[in-house]
């Protein structure tokens, strides 16, 4: 399952993703400021990263909006934006 997470709902979003062994997390908008401690694939939307000048931790991978749309279409999404 794909978890879209922005900063205001980060607490419940990350907590919900933490219990899912198949979670893939995408940090979006102000969510790119987060450094989640999760055993899951974590992505950050590159446009949101660039406009905010964020230095991503190594374990967080950049993803384009186009690639994110493909991910959203491919699987079930839990929205915390």
């Amino acid at each position: 399952m794909l978890y879209l997470i922005d900063e205001p709902m980060a607490d419940i979003g990350l907590r919900t993703a933490a219990g899912d062994p198949d979670a893939r997390v995408v940090l979006i908008q102000d969510g790119v400021f987060l450094s989640p401690d999760l055993d899951a694939e974590v992505y950050a939307v590159e446009k949101d990263v660039d406009v905010r000048g964020v230095d991503l931790p190594d374990e967080v991978e950049r993803i384009s909006y186009d690639a994110l749309v493909d991910l959203i279409v491919e699987q079930e999404v839990k929205n915390f934006v």
Partner: peptide, 10 residues
Amino acid sequence: SGDEVSTLVR
């Protein structure tokens, strides 16, 4: 509990 709520949401 926090875990029950995140399971509910998931």
